[in-house]
Amino acid sequence: MSNTSLVFTPSFIKNPSQNGLGRYVCQLQRVVLKFCKNNGSSRGMREFIEEELVDYARSNPGVVVYLKPRRHRGPVISAEYLNGDKQWINCRNFTKVEIFKWLNLLKTQQGDTTGLRFRKLWHTEMPSIQGPWTPYTFRPSSLNLISFPNEDLSKAPEEESATDKLIELYKKQRISES
């Protein structure tokens, strides 16, 4: 799959507020649920508001929840984060469960990441602690004691010559024949 998309902006992982270095702060500040009181596309949203909204608001005291009924308009969740991001989700024909899931996702997010593609899934301030690898790293340190030129190191590796191989083959043939 290619990443040359015009839709997504390539970016790197950021944590400018250093959230989680000390304590963790929920970044979602405000949620506005917009819905229609009559239209069928808002049915799931209305059910959510009737049955689960109070529990959601109670379990997340840091998040302000607003309701905004409006006639003949589609249901929408609008979320505002601590860093100023504003995210907008169209909830047309969503069920109660789907809306609950989206609200939970908004709660755990740091900001609006729609339209962002992470180029790397790793961020570090210190890319290497032991330094870059060189051909001399992890070699036996006894090599340092050797003085050059060294006859042992510079001689050709011992391997069977072509003549030796032929002689060996000839011997084998003779054994099999006899």
């Binding site: 210190m126 890319p127 602690i129 330094g131 870059p132 340190s141 050059f148 030129p149």
Partner: peptide, 30 residues
């Protein structure tokens, strides 16, 4: 005659700001 100095001169690598000098080592005969 083989040149006496086979190994190239290694200058301290400064690719990474946290590695000011090569790691010191000890000679251990195996």
């Amino acid at each position: 005659t083989v040149p006496k100095k086979l190994l190239p001169n290694i200058t301290p690598l400064n690719f990474f700001s946290n590695v000011p000098s090569p790691t010191p080592y000890e000679i251990v005969d195996q």
